Amino acid sequence: MDKVDELLKLDNQLCFQLYSASRFMTKIYQPLLKPLDLTYPQYLVMLVLWEMPIGHKFTVTSLGERLKLDSGTLTPLLKRLESKRLIQRQRSNEDERQVWVRLTALGESLKQQAKKIPEKLMCDASIKPQELVALRDTLKKLFNSAEG
């Protein structure tokens, strides 16, 4: 087998390992998020909103930038979160194209339940916490170098 054939093996593809890891993460989060009635993408939105002080507003655009999602993907997520009364969306008075998003009291209260999730994942992981941190940091570095 020549070098090119080896390069084209599925198991040698970084993209496949990242894709598989992403699917795996979504799968293991599912039972943890069920009591919160959140999907994994909805959880990611809530994580960003929970980072800010109570009452802070995000524009949909800035939220999309932070999550690396376009508005076509983000808007349906936000609508579902709003229908669950976890967030509130409001058009800007100054520029009607701009939509503000903020947590509701119910959305803020969900944060307490969510605090247990990362800890549970760390306890269930079969690799050391410092290895997970190193993996996360390597992935950030890879993404940042590819992005810019």
Results as ranks from 00 to 15, higher is better:
48 V>K: 13
48 V>E: 15
48 V>I: 14
48 V>H: 09
48 V>Y: 05
48 V>C: 11
49 L>I: 11
49 L>A: 09
49 L>E: 09
49 L>F: 08
49 L>P: 00
50 W>P: 00
51 E>V: 00
51 E>F: 01
51 E>G: 01
51 E>R: 03
51 E>N: 02
51 E>L: 02
52 M>C: 04
52 M>S: 09
52 M>D: 05
52 M>Q: 12
52 M>R: 12
52 M>H: 04
52 M>P: 00
52 M>A: 14
53 P>H: 07
53 P>Q: 10
54 I>G: 00
54 I>T: 02
55 G>D: 03
55 G>V: 04
56 H>Y: 06
56 H>T: 01
56 H>G: 01
57 K>R: 12
57 K>N: 06
57 K>I: 15
57 K>W: 10
57 K>Y: 09
58 F>D: 03
58 F>M: 12
58 F>E: 05
59 T>F: 04
59 T>V: 03
59 T>G: 01
60 V>D: 01
60 V>C: 03
60 V>W: 04
61 T>D: 04
61 T>N: 01
61 T>P: 00
61 T>F: 09
61 T>V: 06
62 S>D: 11
62 S>P: 00
62 S>C: 06
62 S>I: 07
63 L>C: 04
63 L>I: 06
63 L>D: 03
63 L>N: 02
64 G>K: 07
64 G>T: 11
64 G>H: 10
64 G>E: 10
64 G>L: 13
65 E>R: 02
65 E>W: 03
65 E>V: 04
65 E>P: 00
66 R>L: 07
66 R>S: 07
67 L>H: 02
67 L>K: 02
67 L>F: 08
68 K>P: 00
68 K>M: 14
68 K>I: 09
69 L>I: 08
69 L>P: 00
69 L>M: 15
69 L>N: 05
70 D>C: 10
70 D>P: 02
70 D>I: 10
70 D>F: 11
70 D>R: 10
70 D>T: 11
70 D>W: 05
71 S>H: 14
71 S>G: 11
71 S>L: 15
71 S>Q: 14
72 G>F: 15
73 T>Y: 10
73 T>P: 01
73 T>R: 15
73 T>H: 13
73 T>K: 14
73 T>L: 13
74 L>P: 01
74 L>K: 10
74 L>N: 06
75 T>N: 14
75 T>M: 14
75 T>D: 13
76 P>D: 13
76 P>H: 14
77 L>D: 11
77 L>E: 08
77 L>H: 09
78 L>M: 09
78 L>H: 07
78 L>V: 09
78 L>A: 08
79 K>F: 09
80 R>W: 10
80 R>C: 11
80 R>A: 15
80 R>G: 05
80 R>T: 15
